[in-house]
């Protein structure tokens, strides 16, 4: 059973003539970190919203094909049920936090599920610690920085003990440091708590660094799906899809072009350093001999 299983899924929002998803097939295994990359309007958000049933329950439309979350058909299970399996975080930090204190924010989900007070308090402490926001219980969400707000939003999802976190461009309004902190939190959740993470982005820099798998979307379809190295190696292609390529992949592509017999395909700074050092130190030595 997969965390997310889409097979030829088509979705059209009510009142729209275009298919937002036009035959998507995508499997996310439990415990994987998957990034969906694509231009604005390519269908990333719709997949995110479908993963906890907001599509089609809160945002209705025509849904065809298979769309299952942990084996549950999203059509026949309400959001309130799927919410205990999948926690979702939206792009805008401000408008998804609606309580007067961080504690109430994180407690809101389990309160709705009628979890006993003592256990809610334990969950709140646990969730805040996981996102590095312990001690902020009494602060108003309004007073936090963008990065802190997003981490509280993650904690608010975690307190419902979901098996998967889904984030729709969560770093949208964050500065670079806030971005790094956010991804570190997600990485920790995946590695130490077996959390499945599904993320939508239009910049692939973090996808290259953190994802197990990357899906490339175009016009409501997944056109490539696999390991970052296999999917993100061609910067020209990514640009054409409206996706920012990993910057070092451009170095890799240029070197391949100019250096005969070079077989580079690095997407991270570490790999690039190793590969280039090897190649060019040899070359230098070769020249010196």
């Amino acid at each position: 059973m997969q965390a997310l299983h889409l097979r030829d899924a088509r979705f059209r929002y009510k009142g729209s003539t275009a298919w937002a998803l036009d035959g998507v097939s995508l499997d996310v295994e439990k415990g994987e970190f998957v990034t969906i990359l694509g231009a604005n309007g390519s269908g990333k958000s719709t997949i995110c919203l479908m993963s906890n049933g907001l599509v089609p329950h809160a945002l209705p439309g025509d849904l065809e094909g298979t769309a299952e979350v942990f084996g549950l058909d999203v059509r026949s299970h309400p959001v309130t049920e799927l919410a205990t399996k999948v926690g979702i975080i939206f792009q805008e930090p401000e408008s998804q936090l609606f309580c007067m204190s961080v504690e109430e924010e994180v407690a809101f989900g389990p309160e709705n599920l009628a979890v006993p007070s003592d256990e809610i308090r334990e969950r709140v402490e646990w969730a805040l610690e996981l996102v590095g926001m312990e001690g902020y219980n009494d602060r108003s969400p309004f007073s936090l920085s963008g990065g802190q707000k997003q981490r509280v939003a993650i904690a608010a999802a975690l307190s419902m003990r979901p098996d998967m976190l889904v984030l729709d461009e969560p770093a949208y309004a964050l500065d670079p440091v806030g971005r790094v902190e956010l991804y570190q939190v997600l990485k920790g959740l995946k590695e130490h708590h077996g959390m499945t993470v599904l993320l939508a982005e239009c910049d692939s820099e973090e996808a290259a660094k953190y994802s197990d798998k990357v899906a490339l979307m175009k016009d409501g379809r997944v056109i490539s799906y696999g390991k970052p190295r296999d999917v993100l190696g061609d910067p020209e292609r990514l640009r054409a899809l409206g996706v920012t390529p990993p910057q070092v992949s451009e170095v890799s592509a240029l070197l391949k072009e100019r250096l005969e017999g070079a077989d580079f395909s690095f997407i991270s700074v570490d790999e690039a350093e190793r590969a280039i050092n090897e190649k060019f130190t040899n070359r230098k030595r070769g020249r010196e001999q």
Partner: peptide, 12 residues
Amino acid sequence: LSLALQSRAYGA
């Protein structure tokens, strides 16, 4: 806001 409320099992 309304999506966020539902996503946190409001009214469950």
